[in-house]
Computed example of a mutant assay.
Amino acid sequence: MASTLKSLFTTENGVSKPIDARTHGIIDYCHAGLFATVALLCWKKNRNAALTAAGTSAFILVQSLLTDYPLGKKRVIPFATHGAMDAGFAALSFAAPRLFGFSGTKAGLFFQSNSVLESTAVALTDWDSDHARAEEDR
């Protein structure tokens, strides 16, 4: 799976990705915190967005804790699989406002903007699992 992701997101001249496994982990935990904050901010005005953000925060946190990278705790999800999940999450984030009934709102715009940022993080991350393991061993 790592080679598939690498081929999708590596330029033809083999330019390496600037986001390593440790940095991606930091981004993940910040991402979970951001969605938890959005859930709190939306709670009174937009319950659907708040619940979707809370669920997203919980998903990102659990995924991060279970990923085999330097900041993971249980390490049952290979780093490359985490990347595939992130790519799917980027698409879901774009569709979430329509799916959960809050399109056309500020929260909906936040989720759609997150889709672009998530896609960028996926594209700029080095998903090579061996490299991720090497980062941990330093």
Rank of each mutant, 00 (worst) to 15 (best):
Asn114His: 15
Phe111Gln: 02
Gly104Gln: 01
Phe111Val: 02
Arg138His: 13
Gly25Met: 00
Asp68His: 07
Val122Gly: 03
Ala96Thr: 03
Ala84Val: 15
Leu99Trp: 13
Ser129Asn: 11
Ala90Asn: 08
Leu61Gln: 01
Ala53Trp: 00
Cys30Phe: 15
Val15His: 13
Cys30Thr: 15
Asp126Gln: 05
Ala21Phe: 03
Ala134Cys: 06
Trp127Ala: 08
Ala121Gly: 10
Asn114Glu: 12
Ser129Lys: 10
Leu5Thr: 07
Asp130Glu: 15
Leu51Asn: 09
Ile26Ala: 10
Phe35His: 02
Ile77Ser: 00
Lys73Ile: 15
Ala21Ser: 03
Val116Thr: 08
Val122Met: 06
Gly101Asp: 00
Ala49Ser: 06
Thr10Ala: 00
Phe110Glu: 09
Tyr69Ser: 09
Ser3Arg: 14
Thr81Val: 09
Phe111Arg: 03
Ala80Asp: 06
Leu51Ser: 09
Thr56Ala: 08
Thr56Ser: 07
His24Thr: 10
Gly104Arg: 02
Pro78Leu: 02
Ser7Asp: 15
Gly33Glu: 03
Leu8Asp: 12
Lys106Gln: 12
Leu109Asn: 13
Ile27His: 04
Glu12Thr: 12
Gly25Arg: 02
Leu51Met: 12
Asn46Asp: 01
Gly88Lys: 01
Leu124Phe: 13
Met85Phe: 15
Leu8Cys: 07
Asp126Cys: 06
Thr120Pro: 04
Arg98Cys: 07
His131Trp: 12
Gly104Asp: 00
Ala54Asp: 04
Glu136Gly: 09
Ala123Trp: 05
His31Val: 07
Pro70His: 02
